[in-house]
Structure formats: C-alpha cells, structure tokens
Design a protein around this nucleic acid. Sequence first.
DNA 1: AATTTCTATCTTGCGCACAAATCAAGCTAA
DNA 2: TTAGCTTGATTTGTGCGCAAGATAGAAATT
Lengths: 218, 218
Amino acid sequence: MELRRADIIADALEELVFTGGFHDGDRLDELRLARQFDVSRTPIREALQRLVASGIAEQIPRRGVFVRQPGPVELMEMFETMAEIEGVCGRLAALRISEAALEELDRANASCCAAVEGGDADAYYRENERFHHVIYHQAGNGFLEHEALRLHRRLKPFRRLQLRLRGRMSQSMAEHKAIVEALRAGDPDRAAEALRGHVAIQGEKFHLLMSSLRSAAE
Amino acid sequence: MELRRADIIADALEELVFTGGFHDGDRLDELRLARQFDVSRTPIREALQRLVASGIAEQIPRRGVFVRQPGPVELMEMFETMAEIEGVCGRLAALRISEAALEELDRANASCCAAVEGGDADAYYRENERFHHVIYHQAGNGFLEHEALRLHRRLKPFRRLQLRLRGRMSQSMAEHKAIVEALRAGDPDRAAEALRGHVAIQGEKFHLLMSSLRSAAE
DNA sequence: AATTTCTATCTTGCGCACAAATCAAGCTAA
DNA sequence: TTAGCTTGATTTGTGCGCAAGATAGAAATT
C-alpha cells in the first residue's frame, strides 16, 4: 500500500521523534539521514516536509529542518484544545449517538474498570482510547472526527504522562460513567461539560498561571 | 522570508484551486505545472506535497495528486466544526479577553457597519475577518488560535459566497453586537452560544445557496 | 584583546536523468 | 464481439550533481 519510501521514512522519523530519538532543536540532517536509511536525499526531503506539515518539525529556509517539541505552555494549550474538542464531540454525540454505541461505551468502561483493578495500565490505556474514539465517531461529523483523531494522536506520547499527573484512575472511571449517563440522557450541555472537565480541570489552572505570568511580563 | 520556490508555487496553486482554476478530481500534472511555472519538477513536487498535507489535494501513489474539493456533506461538516470551534474560542475569550480587545471589536464592528451602509462588500469582509481573528486570539490559546485560523482560511472561498445573500450582512451585524455584549459581560456560555449560532447560520445559508444554485441549474 | 572581514567548507534548493510502474491502444483468441 | 494479453508511451519515484547561500574558523585591523 505504501510504495513510496518517503512515507515509510516519514513514519520512522515520526516514531523516532515521539520515542525520544531526537530532542527539541535537533537538526535533521539530510545527508546523515540519507546514509542512515540508505536512500538518496530526495525521499528524505519529502519525508521531512511531511514532518514539517504535521507540526513535528520546523523548517527554516536555507538552514534546514529542526525538531520542534512542544514546550510546557504549548503542551497545556494542546491539552486544553483537546478537552474543548472532546466537549464539542460530546455535545454533538449526545444528540446523535446510537444505542449500539452507548452499549459499546459501557463495554469499554467495564474493561477499563477491570484493567484498573487488575493494575493493567496498558489495557486501561487501550480501552480508554476506544472509549474516546467511539465518542468522536458518534459526534456524526466526519471532519470533526478526523480533527479530533489527529490531535489525539499528536498528544499520544504525552497522555501517559498526563494520566500520571492526575493520578487517580478510579476518579477518571467515575467521570467516564457520568459522561455515558449524560450521553444516554441525550443532554448536550451536561455531556460537553463532563467531557471537558474530564481532561481539562488542572489544565485550566495551569493555563491561568501561565497566562498571568505572561501578561505580567508584558 | 520565502526563498523557496516550492512555497510560492504552493501558494499560487492553493489560490488557483480556491478561485476555481481547478475542479474536483483534476490531476495536477507535474510536467505541465513545471513548464507553466518555468521550474523543474522538484519544486512542483514539494508544492504538491504541501497541498496534500493541507487537505486540498489527495495523493495516490504512482498515480499522481488530484484536486479534492469538499462535497456538500463535507462542507456542511466543516461549517459545523468551524461553528463549534468559534464557540469554544468565544467561551474561553469571555474569561480572558482584555479591555483593549473589546474596544478593538467595537471598532471592527463600527467599520463593518460603515461598510454595510456604504455597500462596500470588500471592506465588510475584511473587517468581519478582523473581528473573528481578534476573538480567536483572545481565547488565550495559541494552539487553538492556530487551528481556528487554519479552518477559517480553508472555508474562506465558501464563506465569501454566502455574503451575497440579501440581508445577510445586516443580520450578521446584529449578531456581532450580541457577541461583544456577551464577551463584555464575561459570560462564557452566552458568548459560546452566540458565536456558534452566528457561524452555524453561515453554514445553513450556504446550504440554502447551494441548493438554490443547483435547482436553478436544472 | 576584541571585533570585523575573509575564506574554506558544508548544506540546502533545484535541475536533470533513469528506472519502475501505470495507462492506453492494438492485437489475438475464444 | 469481447475478454485478455502485449507493447509503446506517459508519468511518477528516486539518485545524483551543481550552484547559491549559510556557517565557522582563520586572518587582519583597530
């Protein structure tokens, strides 16, 4: 399916950046990568352009492309945006969700519960992801779903960290239950609020701190 | 700043697609474009990759890249998403907007009013854009602002069409006033609701315009 | 000693050529 | 006649080389 080396290389590079193979500000040297992947510079250049387009790297004309990891501020902004988009998905999903999807949410939640009790972090993570993806889909808006998935994917490497920050898995489970309840009741505002709060409460505090620091500096 | 021909060509091609120079499904022939822009295929290929990354075109390996205009369904989905994102921006902006920004919104609105009375559609369009951009910025979230601008820009060629509808401009003005009021009051829910409605109406008007055009063609 | 200028080297941007894959006819066979 | 095969012509993907621009280090001037 993927016949172009450029795409394979782009995926490999993306993975490398996410798993810490490169650090913020590192220059992605075309020649070095070309030798490393045993291809010419051409497919490397195309792969780099893909990284730039997805925001993982930054290009400075005539200077090269550099890895661009989000700093604390941008990370909080991204999480806040994710929370808001999830809220939107919840709002729309409350009006459009199917009975089958509600049951799948229940199943995902049950699996989550089991994972929490069994201490299986990987399973928890996987089922949690399924839960959210179902909601994106049930918003009934393919474009919005695509955007939500894109941001979700972009935040993937940081989500585990975020889960550790908020710590209490069981509270997260209770929030999941409240979300499903609101969706089942078909209450858009409550669903949006529940989903937003599910991710964003401490992000909000962090952001207020950050923006107050920034405005104080001006 | 833009020393690379690929970027200039990408902008030109984007503009061409937006202004109707290409139609849905058209193949973007590398050789033809290379001759047309009087460059080699290399910068053309890089420009095409940018179009693909921004969703304006689609690439099929070994076959080429094709213009991909959104159909009626996707267009409605994009307008709905834009409405929701603007709602989010409004909600956050209600909590964070500065006094200076509120005054700028008033100024933009006044310019809009003048443009409506003077029948200057271009000026109206420009000031309307400024109005919305200020709100994106006042959401106080750079990442969200960037995403909002991206979608706003993508919808630009379609938003322009619906302005031609009779009476739309003055109705839009009243909505702007209500939005500023909610922002000034610092009421997040009211601001979100006002902005969501304001943009959602654009989508509906657009839908109306589309179907009227289609029925007129038959 | 510090700053500026100059030069040598490296890197990117672009043009060009070749190979593999795809498409379009024409041809053969059932 | 139509389905399938073959062959020639495009077209994309990739390798490679050159020139303009950028970087770093040496040399020179104050």
